[in-house]
Simulated assay, not measured.
Amino acid sequence: MGNSESNDVSTGHRRIRKAISLHNLAKPKSKDVLKGKVEPIRQTDSYLDGINGSLFAPRVPTAFTPEFQFRSDISSCDFQLKSKLGEGTFSTVYKALWLNNKNAIVAIKIQNKDIILEKNAEKQIKRESAIHKLLSESIYIPKFFECWQTATHLFSVMQCVDGIGDLYTLWQHTGCFSEDAIRIYAAEIGLALDYLQNRHVVYRDLKLENVALDSRRHIKLIDFGFSRCLEPGERAMTICGTLQYMAPEVATSTDYGFEVDWWCYGVVLYVLSESEYPFPNGDVNVHTDLTYSSEVSFTRATSELASLIAKLLHLDPNLRLSCLSELMRQPLFPPTFSFESVQKYDIDPVKSEDSS
């Protein structure tokens, strides 16, 4: 029933009315990127030389293996850093050129081992890397290419989601989404959650800021720092995630499963439609202060969309909509709507939003 994880609660969403960031583990600051505040790299060569200087002198040879290996076939010298995408407690993420791979544009995450060990976070970092690798075949997850370690740092090379930022940023610029656009994002996120669930991964931090968007505004789920695998019949107990998206069973220290991700999904859809949170938790800072209600009110959503959100926000996880097959039967998706086309990226959210 229990597990060895430590409780880790975040209010790290950019609030609809007030921004507070507590969880910033290796999370790109997409808002700054979108606003043209990308920080240019200075003294790149000396920075990388310092990291590579101790390549073959490992001080902690086993703490991060087997996920991160000491390797001689790849190093940071194979990459030309172009700009800083963001930084967190343990890491900095850069946009880079992969020189030995036709100058492909990638994202490279560099993590300081001393800081990770100081905070006893090595298990979390290793788990995040392992889960990202496990999920890398989905079109809804940035590809995970390579990882390795030196004596002082960890390196991860991933697909660079070189789009317009994240769903929060798009919501800020757009305001309330049209139902056509919400329908497509609902389908894409639902397909992504189904993919995670089929691989026994509970995400635990689905929110607008963790839904990155590519150049055509299709989704990519990012930041698996709170994710973990659940074997059949296994339940989690850790209180973690972002408060305003936290399912009631998590907040009340009840054992839980994949249903918590579908609750977060309901909160995402509610915010896109109503421009506020479904419950008065916008200024809450601890999980014990979260409040919920069996009644969810709507002012903008159509009856079809409201019906779906209400089923996703059911207080009882046993009665909550929490599988793709049930999602596909909802009135929001008419018989002419093709989930298969959505999965092939044949339906473009840009056109749906621009035509509304």
Rank of each mutant, 00 (worst) to 15 (best):
residue 162 D to P: 11
residue 16 I to G: 09
residue 221 L to Q: 08
residue 144 F to W: 06
residue 88 G to Y: 06
residue 71 R to Q: 12
residue 314 H to A: 06
residue 117 L to H: 10
residue 8 D to Q: 15
residue 184 I to F: 04
residue 339 F to S: 06
residue 185 Y to W: 10
residue 348 D to C: 13
residue 345 Y to P: 07
residue 244 Q to H: 13
residue 156 S to T: 14
residue 256 Y to E: 14
residue 268 V to N: 00
residue 228 R to I: 09
residue 175 G to K: 02
residue 77 C to N: 15
residue 29 K to M: 13
residue 355 S to H: 10
residue 182 I to H: 10
residue 349 P to L: 01
residue 102 K to I: 12
residue 145 F to A: 02
residue 289 D to A: 12
residue 27 K to H: 13
residue 317 P to I: 04
residue 171 W to H: 14
residue 59 R to T: 09
residue 147 C to P: 11
residue 69 Q to H: 11
residue 37 K to N: 15
residue 303 S to F: 03
residue 143 K to F: 06
residue 238 T to S: 04
residue 306 A to G: 09
residue 75 S to H: 01
residue 337 F to K: 10
residue 18 K to T: 14
residue 240 C to I: 11
residue 107 A to R: 04
residue 211 V to H: 00
residue 73 D to N: 09
residue 63 A to G: 12
residue 253 S to P: 10
residue 343 Q to S: 04
residue 99 L to E: 12
residue 2 G to R: 07
residue 275 S to W: 07
residue 301 A to Q: 05
residue 356 S to P: 10
residue 153 H to R: 09
residue 32 D to M: 09
residue 97 L to D: 09
residue 131 I to M: 02
residue 228 R to N: 02
residue 107 A to N: 07
residue 24 N to H: 15
residue 173 H to P: 08
residue 345 Y to C: 10
residue 353 E to H: 05
residue 163 G to K: 03
residue 279 F to H: 12
residue 228 R to D: 09
residue 307 S to W: 05
residue 177 F to I: 03
residue 238 T to I: 06
residue 144 F to G: 10
residue 209 E to F: 06
residue 166 D to W: 00
residue 31 K to L: 13
residue 250 V to C: 07
residue 97 L to K: 10
residue 179 E to A: 04
residue 226 F to M: 10
residue 266 G to C: 01
residue 300 R to C: 05
residue 321 L to V: 08
residue 68 F to Q: 07
residue 347 I to Y: 02
residue 11 T to K: 11
residue 160 C to G: 04
residue 125 I to S: 02
residue 164 I to G: 01
residue 232 P to Q: 01
residue 4 S to W: 15
residue 75 S to V: 04
residue 64 F to L: 08
residue 58 P to Q: 00
residue 93 V to W: 02
residue 43 Q to D: 15
residue 64 F to T: 13
residue 160 C to A: 09
residue 337 F to G: 11
residue 208 L to H: 14
residue 206 L to C: 07
residue 200 H to N: 15
residue 273 S to C: 06
residue 198 N to V: 11
residue 137 E to K: 13
residue 212 A to W: 08
residue 103 N to E: 08
residue 336 T to N: 08
residue 240 C to Q: 14
residue 315 L to T: 15
residue 14 R to T: 14
residue 227 S to L: 05
residue 286 V to L: 00
residue 24 N to G: 14
residue 17 R to T: 15
residue 315 L to I: 14
residue 327 L to V: 12
residue 191 L to E: 03
residue 183 R to M: 10
residue 22 L to I: 15
residue 72 S to H: 15
residue 222 I to H: 04
residue 301 A to G: 01
residue 180 D to M: 00
residue 136 S to F: 15
residue 188 E to Y: 06
residue 275 S to M: 02
residue 1 M to K: 13
residue 308 L to H: 01
residue 187 A to E: 12
residue 259 E to M: 03
residue 228 R to Q: 06
residue 97 L to G: 10
residue 41 I to R: 03
residue 96 A to G: 12
residue 91 S to L: 07
residue 203 Y to M: 01
residue 70 F to V: 09
residue 214 D to F: 04
residue 299 T to G: 13
residue 276 E to I: 11
residue 139 I to V: 12
residue 171 W to F: 11
residue 302 T to Q: 00
residue 326 E to H: 10
